[in-house]
Design a protein around this nucleic acid. Structure first.
Lengths: 186, 186
DNA sequence: TCTTGCCTATCTACTAGTAGGTAAGTATAT
DNA sequence: ATATACTTACCTACTAGTAGATAGGCAAGA
């Protein structure tokens, strides 16, 4: 892994663990054994680094999307959930949640970079739900996009709230969501 | 309103708007026309101020709970939602969401103060759901506490996500949640 | 009714530390 | 010899927090 990639990885970890405003170039420099000025060589500003983190996360989302393209709707949804499972196991929140709470304290370029990513994720989940409903494996009454918003906010929210209420609540919520989606109504 | 109360109010606003780590005593001092040292007189440390903000929010939660005690379950749930509606109208996120994303960068005293508040809210919503189900006005299959977690994370999450996807998504989600709860299944 | 003295709330002035960022120089590898 | 990746050394701005002074209000005692 190149230095640049290592910086992105560590910055990403810190953003998801402590928030964008709570990590510094010094934190990174200590962990990497290089000077803060060297990080500035790769990323002129903290905003640039933030943007790189968003892009990297976006790419890994798109890769997951591509990798599960030919699978069934349930597998796709489980793949989507797997991202949050991994985050939870490390005590992290998700990038969207972390950046959105700090959004109005950040450079507008961050918001600009984040927006298409969020819209992409929302579209992906919406499509998964539509497909699942069409094939009769998912059952829900709200509009697919609305239902996608509900699922996303549940996962995003429980990553945060379960830091307080306890880790087991994460699985409680995830399981309930899957069960509810699979249950036929009326 | 006393100076102390004004500080709490403004600090609260800033935390919900920009996050705990993005506001400073200087921000408050500028808005109030007093010096930072004067704020330190009322709140020795930033953590002390954070704790005061949590206590104030907790009290207003408890007051709302008390004020709606004799009402029906639907009214209670709408009262619960009204908190988020007010926050959304001001572009804010909720205190729990804001503090949880930054939690691991904050003084442990913050977590200690926040925990019973979150548990209180969760208990309140759980009780509302139980009552609604018993009286036949709410319909859901998950355990009441789990369903409460789902509702809370939906509201907490949509406050954050709709900063990016657009304000209207907040109402979309809120309306869908109420409709789904009121709809009888099977 | 003075006066003494404490309490509250603020100020000025300061500290030590950290933040993000820059400029100029160095070693290395192609 | 040029680009890459880094260093040293620095700057400016801001952070939370402290010390000591001040001015007004209140209350008890001579």
């Amino acid at each position: 892994m190149t230095t640049k990639d290592t910086i992105i990885k560590l910055a990403s970890d810190l953003i998801l663990e402590k928030g964008f405003n709570a990590f510094s170039f010094y934190d990174l420099s200590e962990k990497m054994g290089i000077k803060t000025a060297s990080i500035h060589y790769h990323f002129p500003s903290k905003t640039d680094l933030g943007i790189a983190v968003i892009r990297q996360q976006s790419e890994s989302f798109i890769a997951l999307q591509a990798a599960t393209e030919s699978k069934d709707a349930l597998s796709k949804l489980e793949a989507f959930f797997s991202i949050y499972i991994r985050h939870k196991s490390q005590g992290k929140v998700c990038l969207v949640g972390s950046l959105c709470t700090d959004l109005y304290s950040l450079d507008p370029a961050i918001e600009k970079e984040l927006k298409p990513v969020v819209e992409g994720i929302l579209q992906w989940v919406t499509d998964i739900l539509k497909e699942g409903k069409r094939k009769g494996v998912f059952h829900f009454s709200a509009a697919p996009r609305t239902k996608a918003l509900l699922l996303i906010t549940n996962m995003l929210g429980i990553l945060q709230v379960s830091r307080i209420t306890g880790k087991t609540d994460f699985n409680e919520v995830r399981t309930a969501l899957l069960k509810e989606l699979k249950t036929k109504k009326e």
